[in-house]
Write a protein that binds this DNA or RNA. Structure first.
Lengths: 344, 344
DNA sequence: TATTGCTGCACAATCGTTTGCGCAATTATA
DNA sequence: TATAATTGCGCAAACGATTGTGCAGCAATA
């Protein structure tokens, strides 16, 4: 129902009394290949410019089965970690002539499924996804359709797909080990969503670090179930109320630690005097907090650029996508949120 | 060059010995309108499901001149303010059956121009943009093409376009007035990009507040030129070094204030004892900073949802888009970063 | 029996590109 | 002066969907 007056190949061809194909070839820089004369070429180029011709990518995509568009599905665009990833991906894409359609799955499988549907109906050339976790039939279906897909940040547990992300196990291990080396023995972990690879690896890293330091595992100190701020707040509040409360909290995400801070300050406790904290994900503000926070930083730039390159590879060489797994090292950034505990 | 084995209307039609049109009509729920028998209808529906039919939106869009896709161009996805906006827009869009193609202009006009090109070639149904500022020919061109467009957060200065954003003038005025009422007379402002409406309004609000409080304008206290962290850092560092240094800084963006914090702490100064600060944009972490920061919060949710609704209106009723301007109120959130100065 | 009306669907054009193939006109070769 | 090669471009199919129009077949009516 729109009356957009767009100039098409046909417009140009009619104005110049040449065929549509000739115009197409010229505008695609195939003049020599198809031996279009310099005169015609120049003429077409000029009128195309005058008429402000912009190719219709729908038609192009329909014909070429290639849209130069990829889909990016992440669980929460507003989360600074994902925002950064999204921004980096978009830039890589743009630099390579690709557009990106972003979709926020809100950590919900149904949303993820429907986004996947939408994206495939939009005929994107590939998908970058940080899966919600749990089910993976819908991802398998994408894979079977032959649509290039690479997972980012979070792996798919029961499906072999290329992956790029941090070495979460080691990252968590290092953080918790650091706490232990500082004399902490009652260390709590506030988890994110349980059936995400990220979370599993971080929890395992935590457990391994405790074992390594001969600290027994206390199930009551393994809490949480979501990566959001509310979860951090709720679980930290609870933790602070148990009889022998932990001396340190390991927050598995940047929003979680923010929530934990809220709980801690609400109780008028001080960091690190009353309680220590380490958070996954370094943020620009991490050093300006009331107590500059010790964090484990992820290599966002590498994650984004490698993931994008991997996807491009899958798209170009349409080979059966050997499920590469790329684990990038994290970095513990030590600031002031961890106290050294003197034991006798 | 891909061998995607997709089921099309034709596949279904052949399998059932009916025509493509019949299949199309059934799958679009137009069985009654075109009097397709219940038997045929059910059969088609069933096989479509079995074959996992997903419509090709390229073909659809080509025919319908409607893609159910909008473009969103913002200057920096990684900036939490825009990340939030993007996330809210995406959700609104999804709820209305639209996809959004995100583009980060990096505050560069050339990028903005080329993104606009890409988006129109992708045949998006409308555009939401927070323009870089400066030139606006490319936006005029979009408008002339009849493509629905609404500006968000930043207005276009020399072109009438629908707009939704905060009342930046009043927001800035209130903030600076608050500083003045607390006895500050040497108040610096660190600006963002100069020719953005946002910045102009905030600076004007600042100036007006000074006038209202009989404080003379000191040009040396009006500094800055970018919304990023580096600008905040550099300008704050400079400000802290001038002979009679300001007692308060008004940072016009969340990244700017972060940079300012860096400069302040680097100089071992304390907030608010040595210097006061107010920042535009409230953030989740604002209250957990070394000194919880007084901020002027923007109504992100309203901005996003109203902007989206406005765009939908433009798209649906394709009327000539009366350039609505919607200014939403901001809110001063008072925390601890402003000192009360006692004058004699 | 002839006419009308309804049911149930098919035909074909269209959206804007791309591209293999073909063909006329020109130039080069023999 | 034939024949061959080259130059320069057009034809038409295809991509996958939507939709106005038309047309059989059958039932109902006159």
């Amino acid at each position: 129902m729109k009356r957009q007056i767009n100039t098409t190949l046909e417009n140009i061809s009619k104005q110049l009394n040449v065929s549509i194909s000739t115009v197409s070839r010229v505008l695609n820089g195939k003049s020599k290949k198809y031996r279009i004369s310099k005169k015609t070429t120049d003429l077409i180029l000029k009128t195309a410019q005058q008429l402000d011709y912009i190719p219709n990518q729908l038609a192009r995509g329909l014909r070429l089965k290639m849209t130069n568009t990829i889909g990016l599905i992440i669980p929460d665009i507003a989360n600074p970690f994902f925002a950064k990833i999204a921004s980096l991906i978009e830039k890589s894409a743009r630099d390579n002539g690709f557009s990106v359609i972003v979709s926020d799955s809100e950590e919900k499988t149904e949303v993820e499924i429907s986004s996947l549907q939408t994206l495939t109906s939009l005929k994107i050339d590939g998908i970058l996804i940080s899966p919600v976790g749990g089910q993976s039939k819908h991802l398998a279906s994408i894979k079977n359709r032959g649509i290039p897909i690479v997972t980012i940040d979070r792996q798919c547990l029961d499906l072999e797909l290329p992956f790029v992300g941090s070495d979460n196990f080691k990252g968590a291990f290092t953080a918790v080990n650091y706490l232990a080396k500082n004399g902490h023995t009652r260390i709590a972990i506030i988890q994110g969503i349980k059936n995400t690879s990220v979370n599993i690896d971080r929890v395992n890293g935590y457990i391994e670090a405790l074992k390594e330091n001969n600290i027994s595992i206390d199930k009551r100190l393994i809490v949480g179930e979501n990566f959001d701020e509310r979860n951090g707040y709720v679980e930290a509040s609870l933790l602070l109320n148990i009889e022998k409360r932990p001396t340190a909290i390991f927050a598995t995400g940047n929003l979680i630690s923010l929530g934990a801070l809220r709980a801690i300050y609400e109780k008028k406790l001080r960091i690190p005097d009353d309680i220590s904290i380490i958070s996954f994900d370094d943020q620009p503000y991490s050093s300006y907090l009331a107590t500059p926070m010790t964090t484990v930083a992820q290599p966002n730039h590498e994650i984004a650029s490698i993931a994008f390159r991997l996807l491009m590879d899958c798209i170009e060489t349409n080979k059966t996508m050997e499920p590469y797994k790329i684990l990038l090292p994290t970095k513990l950034i030590i600031r002031d949120s961890v106290a050294k505990i003197i034991t006798h």
